[in-house]
Simulated assay, not measured.
Amino acid sequence: MTHKIILLACLAVSVCGAAKVPVAIYYESLCPDSAKFITEQLYPAMKTELRDFVELTFVPFGKSQFFTQGSEVTFTCHHGPNECYGNKVHACAIEHIQANSYQVEYTRESLTLDFINCLMRAGKNFPDNVYPGQRCATENHVNNWENIKTCANTTDGSILLRKAGETTQRLKEPLTSVPTILFNEQFDKKVNERAQVNFAGTLCKYVSAPQPRICAQHNGAMGLVGTGSLLSAILGIWFMRQLFN
């Protein structure tokens, strides 16, 4: 009986503990296409149950360049100096945002996503030319804006942005468009283009069974079930029958 319980537990883990899909977003803070993708595709999808199936990485650099002279690092950015500052704010936020034990409804990942979405939604038009970092932090329960701002205005921000640049430069396929979206650390031009108009549906192609309901809405549940996913589904049915027999 003990061995049977252990076997059932192992099957439960294999059926229910699906691995998260690594998704990396290479973007620029003032890029209109980046803003459109993050606010209209990525953010709405990540506010559904799909968030539990994704390991999300933001890389705020894009087509920027950096030059090192001694200990100094200078940047040139696709949309000008303001974008360089914005990229630093994003890089510092990704590094420094932390969840608080008294706000259990917010995770580090959800706070970062909400903050970045707010910044991208603001676009290039800032009221009174004030960067929306303080406002977006306040609106989205990010309590350490001062630390983020200090980081962005010091060498700490430059170091983090350079790291984002180095990560971008290490791509196997050199970045040619922004945003660029990688699934499972692999670049595919068609997948990248499809993700920008249907991120949720594209992500579902990579999610193992049991899939969230939203995947059925986007692609048809059976159309997405591959051999491995079908086996997991069969094991799941067998597990439930054994459990209640």
Score class of each variant (00 low, 15 high):
1 M>G: 07
2 T>S: 15
3 H>D: 14
3 H>R: 12
4 K>T: 14
7 L>H: 00
10 C>V: 11
10 C>A: 14
19 A>P: 00
32 P>E: 03
32 P>F: 04
38 I>V: 14
42 L>H: 03
42 L>P: 01
43 Y>A: 14
43 Y>V: 10
56 L>H: 08
59 V>I: 15
64 S>M: 07
67 F>G: 01
69 Q>L: 13
72 E>H: 11
84 C>K: 08
84 C>G: 04
93 A>K: 03
97 I>W: 03
98 Q>F: 05
99 A>P: 01
100 N>M: 14
101 S>C: 06
108 R>K: 15
111 L>M: 08
115 F>L: 11
123 G>F: 01
124 K>S: 15
127 P>G: 06
128 D>S: 14
130 V>L: 11
139 E>T: 11
142 V>R: 06
147 N>V: 13
150 T>K: 14
154 T>S: 15
156 D>K: 11
158 S>H: 10
160 L>F: 06
165 G>P: 00
167 T>R: 13
168 T>F: 06
168 T>V: 06
169 Q>M: 14
173 E>F: 10
174 P>Q: 09
175 L>W: 04
177 S>Q: 13
177 S>E: 13
189 K>D: 12
190 K>L: 13
191 V>L: 12
191 V>N: 02
193 E>W: 00
194 R>I: 09
200 A>F: 01
204 C>Q: 06
204 C>I: 07
205 K>P: 00
210 P>A: 12
214 I>C: 04
218 H>I: 02
224 L>V: 01
227 T>M: 12
228 G>S: 13
235 L>S: 09
235 L>R: 03
241 R>C: 14
243 L>A: 15
